[in-house]
Design a protein around this nucleic acid. Sequence first.
RNA 1: GGUCCGUUAGCUCAACUGAAUAGAGCAUCUGACUACGGAUCAGAAGGUUGCAGGUUUGAAUCCUGCACGGAUCACCA
Length: 592
Amino acid sequence: MNIELIIAEGVVKAVKALYDLDTEVSAVQIQQTRKEFEGNLTVVVFPYLKASHKAPEATALEIGAWLEENIEAISAFNAVKGFLNLSVSPKFWLSQLHDIAENETFGITPVTDDSELVMVEYSSPNTNKPLHLGHVRNNLLGYSLSRILEANGKRVVKTNIVNDRGIHICKSMLAWQKWGNGATPESTGKKGDHLIGDFYVEFDKHYKDEVRSLMEQGLGKEEAEAQSPLMLEAREMLRRWEANDPEVRELWQMMNGWVYAGFDETYRRLGVGFDKIYYESDTYLEGKDLVLGGMEKGLMYRKEDGSVWADLTADGLDHKLLLRSDGTSVYMTQDIGTAKLRYQDYPIDKMIYVVGNEQNYHFQVLALLLDRLGFKWGKDLTHFSYGMVELPEGKMKSREGTVVDADDLIDTMISQAREASADRFKDMDEAEAAEIARIVGLGALKYFLLKVDPRKNMLFNPKESIDFNGNTGPFLQYTYARIRSVCRKASEELASCSYAEAVPNDKECALIQKVADFPSVVIEAGKSYSPALIANYCYDLAKEYNQFYHDFSILREEDPATRCLRLNLSAVVARTLKSGVALLGMEMPERM
RNA sequence: GGUCCGUUAGCUCAACUGAAUAGAGCAUCUGACUACGGAUCAGAAGGUUGCAGGUUUGAAUCCUGCACGGAUCACCA
């Protein structure tokens, strides 16, 4: 049983017995005892002063005495001002360690058939350029969030909505037709998404040239942009696409196919995936029907020019356009259509959209509209809003070539990991060395992006790249690999020894306590949708373990029970670290 | 201009949602391998938590105002 709960229940009884005060278990304030004081856990007694009519310290001492008397696990206490520091007996920690070691799925709530069904949308790329660092943050957050929710017993459907239609795709297609000379991923040896991205840039270059020369002929900027022959051609292509022109559709299919192959490779390398992928080319018409249906029910209205709007002023927002005067869809309409298809496919209880914070307003509106249109999860949809990844010079801009490409970054991380371990295992064969470099390089990247509060913009400095020392992914992996090394050396003893007679010292108790916190951290991370909480916990645990490892010998400890305790404690720490970082999508190497 | 978000050590980030002397890492300086893995550990130094008020026994955290930065308010996606 959880020690904090035991203490909280004890405090409720204590204040009832001592001061006749009724309070709730959830209202009891318990925190980790600060390092400079004796004890494991601390109860804040300020809330009970009114009932005790005594000074803070006297009240704390009184409650402490009651707890020591009535709760077996409490072995000592002291009071500093209004803080009651409680020491938990080594015996209790020993039994905790035993329980944890026995529990194969420690910290993980099993998923059952009647678990809540949560859909997580993430990634959501455009098919006109390769993924960059911002997408990587999105993908890792979305994937990690899915894992965390699963660990909290939710059924999770991971989904992706691919923005595969629109003028931007036509630009790449047109550029390929004009200047591609039939280039394919095979003929050029380029990843499909990069190839398409190059043509998108190519279009932009020629388009800018056209605009410039038109402006030199005396046109205004807007006029020039509107009259650029390339842009007119791209728009014409979009019209043909929407009219199902076979030639355009065929080209579109082929080029999108290249992009998907490229994306799939990046996803695979990142270790993320989806249960179901939706395409806007399939969903944008659905949304139109829903909006028109809603209009008939009086939920939306039509202006004289034929455009369709929703009046959201009653909810403190503005009027929102849903269909243009020419009857075509906007972004919002597509999201409504996608929602409909998803609900047809899955009886969703909860929808989470992992999308950047520049779309906060969009999702506020979407929630209201879906609710209005009768989606039961609409009002309570969660926009998991995250900040941008910025460079020292500011925002990434594809036009200025300051985008950090996802594939390049992954390559860089892996080769740096390779360098860092080059002189370490010369005996290792190539396949194993490559696998370890992959795990460590990606671990550094994932931890770097996930340890930060998602809401905040974060900084990535390409010159400094990502560290492998200190508060990093490799620090966790190193700790794990080192424990595994020790466990391998004593595998037989670990399997058969007994630590029933051992008496854990303060450091060992503190370490057991840290491990025992894992389940509540998983729960809190699930409630607050926070991979960062998991990352910070894993770091604290690894740091605590490394201190222990440094101060005490494991294999050279002479007392068999103590040696066994330390072996088992190490094994449990390793296992907890591994399942913790798994929630971040990170892997652990057996050696590094 | 309206709305929303952010501002913590030189730099990158924490702080269990109101508690003790605001913590880590990097960088700087000092120390620890004939040792179970030094991608480690120990120590020093570094702060008026953007500013000013307020609520509270107690505020980085809650309220008000201001400053700075960002996003958004498109018949763009």
